[in-house]
Structure formats: C-alpha cells, structure tokens
Design a protein around this nucleic acid. Structure first.
Lengths: 207, 207
DNA sequence: TAATAAATTGACCAGTGTGGTCGAATGTTG
DNA sequence: CAACATTCGACCACACTGGTCAATTTATTA
C-alpha cells in the first residue's frame, strides 16, 4: 500500500481513475483487472504489486472515496448556516466543484452506496455509517424552520427545495459532461442557479 | 420469433424479465445468456430456439420496451390537458402504475437510453426517435402558460415543478422497492402527492 | 395406438477472459 | 560493481462465453 502511495501523483491518479471507473460501471464481480491496467497504462504485474488482490484494491478505493467526499465536500459545508436555502447553495457549489474535479470518485461512491455488492471490513463499515450520518446532518441539522411560510408544511417545502437543487445540479452536470474543466467558466451557470434559488425563496419563505 | 410469442404468457414474461434485468444491469456486452436462462428457469437451447442470437434478443427487448412505454405510459397521458401541474399529475400516476407493474422494462429502457451500447437497425432507430419526441411533447406541448405567476420566469417554474414531481416519484419508488404489488394500497401516497402538488400550485400559479 | 412433429434439454464446442504469479529486464542507489 | 526497488507481460489453471446439436420428452395427428 505504501508502495502505491509513494508513487508519482499523476500516475497514482490515473490508476485510481481507471479503477474507480471500472468498478463503478461493472460492480465488483464483473470489473476486470485487465481492463483496469490497460486503461491505466501500466503492466498487469504492477496492480498486484501495489495491492495484494482485487478485493484489497476495491477496499482501498472505498476508503479513498469516502475520504475524498468527506474532505472535499461534506466537511466544507458550513453547518452553522441555519438558512436552508443558503446552506443548499453552499453545498451545491462545493459539491459541484469536487464533482467536476473528480467525477469518477462520485460515480464510484454513488453506485457503491446503492448496490453494496461487497460487505466491508468493520472499520470501513463504521466510517461508511459515519459518512451517511454526516450527509444527513448536512440536510437536516440546525435548520431555522421559522423562515418558511406558515401556510406550507415545512418538511414538504424542505423536500421540494432539495429536489429542485438536485434537479438543477443533475441538469448542469449532464450539460457539462465531457467538457474540459480547464478555464470552464461556471459563472453564468451559478447566476442561473441563483435565479432558481430566488424563486424558491420567494415561493417557500415568508417574504 | 413467432415461436416465442405463442408461448404461455407467464413463461414469456419470466424470460423477458430475466433478460431485461440482465441487460439493464450489465449492458449488452457483459450480459450473460447463461445467467438469463438460469434466472428464467429454461434450458440454454430454448433461448436460441426463440431468438436466433444474443443481438436478436436484445433488439426484441428494445422493441418490446418501446411498445410498452408508448402503450402503457406516453399514449395514455391526455395531451389536451393544458394545465401543466394537472398533466404532470396524470403522467405521474400512469407512469407509476406502469412502472410498478413492470419495473424491469423501465430499468432496461432507462439504461438503454443513456448508454446506447449497441446501434439499432434503422426501423428501431426511427421508433426510438419518435418515442423521444413523444416524451418531449408530453412535457412541453400545448401548456397554458398564463396560469403561472407573472413575477416568475415560466421556464424555471416549469423545471422546478418537473424536478419536484420527479423527486417525489423517485422517492416513492425507492420506498416501495421490493414490496409486493398485490393489494398494495397506493392511496395514502397519492394523497401525499396531491399535497405536494397543492404546494406547487400555490407557489407557482397565480391564485 | 402408432407415427409424426414440436418443444425442450444440457453436455459440449472452441474461443476468450479471469485473477493472480513470476522470472526476467530495467532503473536506482550506495 | 552489488544490492535493491520497480516494471513488464507471458503465462497459468480455470471459469465463463455465445452458440450448437443429438437425444429425449411432450403434443398432435391419423
């Protein structure tokens, strides 16, 4: 494992990306180590020089992805912002940035969370539950419910805002798919996003 | 092909479900005919007695799925309903019903549409484009825009409503996943859905 | 009932891909 | 030079691939 971590970061990332992609698209069982090394541009032997076997590699990826998502997303969102829409705004921007910088990680984690085709060793399982809990807190903890309209069920407004934000994000990701991220100007998209948020605010908050 | 269509419908469906599932989960290339026959509970030979090869089977499934989605979903939505929210309500109910009755078809069509790992023969390609067009019309054709609030961009309201409806539907499907559909009482869920729609109406229509 | 036809099976085929190993070659350091 | 770390891909036994087909069971007809 240390072998892999002392590698040239560029190469490291290429291997990670290749593996994350392969597992995300095919699940653990159907994923092919041959394809991984081919797409990573390394010899077959190296993969098993860095990781002792397929499962070991997979668990490393789970660990890596969870770290990434916690460090580059969840822990960066200000949980003290009690205005739900503002918090969603921050979260969306942070998430989008992380997602554009490392889409394979998010894809991998996404399919991992909803298929779970391998049971994890206890320490990873623990960390996974912690991550879920942190994701939950991000959405629901410490929100100021007094900002919402009185004539609308707060939880429902909650969900509608969430679905709206997610919908826009999904939409944007699809539009940006494949685009080179270098000097990609996101400003107009954020402006549009803010307009959506204004509408949501006008619709679900007391004005 | 006629061989397959003259089969006992129960058995027919079991084979279809097995194949739809296999292709949906693994794509054309990675899908295994061995797994298909095993899960369908038939001998290997029969599959190639009904369909001349793997590709033939796949194309049959595409055709079948498109027919299903058009007949049991798209063509049942009243395109003359000009109230967007009402049309979305109808569409959601029809779609949900179809989806619960035949989830594998929707899964298959879903992954097919966004991966397209096989190019279709022209007549299927045509039908596919027609289906996309029908899906578009369902959302955008003949909507009465005067119902919307004047101080909110109509297209954005459009999208927010769409995302809200999709979000709820997604949410509901997940909750109902695996549940037996026999005597499954959807009424409370539709009631909840209507409450959401009321909120959307209150928020985005002129009152 | 006997004869014919249709439906069904799974062992079998050659070929491809599997996760993983290892001896040899190359690079690095002292 | 020697000792060691890194890298490769041919190679392994084996599992699985899409597809075939002789043999058998089942249904239909005469």
């Amino acid at each position: 494992m240390e072998k892999f971590e002392n590698l040239d970061p560029k190469k490291q990332q290429k291997i990670l990306d290749s593996a994350l992609m392969e597992f995300a698209e095919n699940g653990f069982g159907q994923a092919s180590t041959n394809r991984i090394v081919k797409n990573a541009g390394i010899g077959k032997g190296m993969l098993f020089y860095y990781f002792k076997n397929k499962k070991d590699l997979y668990e490393y990826l789970v660990d890596y992805s969870m770290n990434f998502i916690i460090n580059e997303y969840l822990s960066l969102v200000d949980i003290n912002e009690s205005d739900f829409i503002k918090r969603m705004r921050d979260a969306a921007q942070i998430k989008m940035k992380a997602q554009l910088e490392n889409e394979h990680t998010f894809n991998f984690m996404g399919t991992f969370m909803l298929t779970k085709d391998l049971d994890l060793p206890p320490h990873l399982q623990k960390r996974y539950e912690h991550l879920q809990q942190q994701g939950y807190a991000l959405l629901y903890e410490g929100i100021d419910k007094t900002l919402f309209r009185k004539d609308v069920d707060v939880d429902k407004a909650f969900n509608l805002i969430r679905w709206g934000v997610d919908g826009y994000q999904q939409n944007l990701l699809q539009k940006l798919q494949g685009k080179k991220m270098t000097e990609l100007d996101l400003k107009p998209y954020w402006d549009e996003f803010y307009e959506y948020l204004d509408i949501l605010k006008k619709s679900f908050y007391t004005n």
